[in-house]
Amino acid sequence: MIDILQIFLSESFWAASLRIASPLIFGVLGALLCERAGVLNLGIEGIFVVGAMTGWMTVWLGAPLPVGVLAAAFSGALFGFLHSVLTVPLGLSQHVSGLGITLFASSLASFTYRTALPQVSSPPRIEPFRSLDVPILTDLPFFGPVLFQQTALTWLALILVCVVWWIMDRTPLGVALKAVGDNPEAVNAQGLSVIRLRMGAVVVGSSLMALGGAFLTMSAFDAFFFGMVNGRGWICIALVIFASWQPGKALIGALLFGMFDALQVRLQTEAGALVPPQVFLMMPFILSIIALVIVARRADYPRALLTPWFKGQR
C-alpha cells in the first residue's frame, strides 16, 4: 500500500504544491481583475506564453532578472490593452477577441523565439531566480523549507493576493471596480468613466497573467520551450469561478490545484508500475472539475460580465 499520509507529512510535497501554484496565483488574480470589471479575458493562455517568452528573452539578452519580470508584465499589458480596446470601447464579443488574442500572442511569441534563435537544438538557459533562503526562518522546522526556500516570484504572488484583496475590499477604487462589473450605469451616473475603469482592469489583469508565464521560464525552469504553458491559463479561468471572484479563495483554489499536481507526481513514482501514468496526469484536472461542480453551482457571477456598455444607449 502507498502511504499517502507520508506524502502529506513531507515538507517537499508542500513546497512543491506552493511552487506549482505560483503561476496559477498570478493568472487567477489577473483573470479575476478583468472579470470583476465585467470583461472575460480568454487571451490568458496566449498572454502566459508571451510573458514566459519576453521574461526569458530579456534576461537571455543580458538584462537583470527584475528587468525581465517588468518586461514580461509590460508585454502582458500590451496584449491586455489590445483586448480591452476591442471589447470595451468597441464592444466586440469577448469570447472571440480573447481566443483571437490567445492564438495571436502564442504564435507571435513562438515566431519571435524562432527568429531570434533559428539554429539551436536545445533551448539556451538563463540563470533563474534562486530561492530566497531567509536567514533563521529557513531553518524553522517544516515552515522553513515550505515557505522560506521559495523564490522571490512566489513571494510576489503571495503579496499580490493581499494587494488585490486590499484594493478590492478596502478602497473606493475597488468598490468602483466591483460596481462596473455589476451595473456600469451606476458607475457612469456617479461621473466615473466606465471605459477607463474597465480598460485599466484588463490591462493590469493581463500584466499579472504575463507574470504567471514569466514564473515558468524564470523560476520554475530556466529556458523557454514550446507548449510549456500547457493549459495553465485555462485552469485559471476555471479557478476564478471556483474562487467566486475573491482573491483569498483564488489563493486556496490555486493551492488545491498545486497539491493535486504535486500529489500525482508522487503517486506516479510510487504506484507507476500498477497504474498507467496518464491516469495520474489527468488527476489534477479531474479533481478540479469535481471541485468546480461543487462550488460553481452557487457561483455569483458579476452581473455585467460579457455585457458591453455604451454611453447613452437605451
Binding site: 473606493p172 477604487l173 468598490v175 468602483a176 466591483k178 460596481a179 451595473n183 456617479q190
Partner: peptide, 28 residues
C-alpha cells in the same frame, strides 16, 4: 443630483459603498 427611474445601483455592493461610489479618491 439625479434620482433615476431605472436604478443606478450595483447590486453586489452594500448601501454605503453605493452611496460613496465616486465621491472619494481611489485610495481614501
Amino acid at each position: 443630483g439625479m434620482v433615476h427611474q431605472h436604478f443606478t445601483l450595483a447590486e453586489n455592493l452594500t448601501v454605503l459603498d453605493n452611496i460613496l461610489l465616486g465621491t472619494e479618491p481611489p485610495f481614501s
